[in-house]
Amino acid sequence: MNVNVQFREEGNRIYGVIEGEIDTYTAPMLREELEVITINKSSIIELDLSKVTYMDSTGLGVFVAFYKKVLKENAELKLVRLSSRLARLFEITGLSELMDIETDKKVEPANECI
């Protein structure tokens, strides 16, 4: 079980691709990885979750804490390419009303074929 994040910066935009499973054991690792990002006032941070194969509620905790941090800096956070399973977690918890979340329609059918 592992999780890692690859970052790419383009001007004030930061793209991150998260890969792996996010649970009680890996959530602290993810938190550390996200803490490394320097957030400026106009930063737009986009996290791609299409390679996250599993996430439990501790993972949600990490994203909410990060979202609050980004909000404090007046920057923007976007979570993109969520599988339907992940998107459901954000919906049930009411977080999808609060955060900018995009599901990936291209990813979903592939997931269901497995």
Binding site: L60, V64, K68, E91, I92, T93, G94, L95, E97, L98
Partner: peptide
């Protein structure tokens, strides 16, 4: 029985 209430303790 669902409603879109946010988790307690976020905002």
């Amino acid at each position: 029985l669902d409603s879109n209430g946010l988790l307690l303790g976020v905002l």
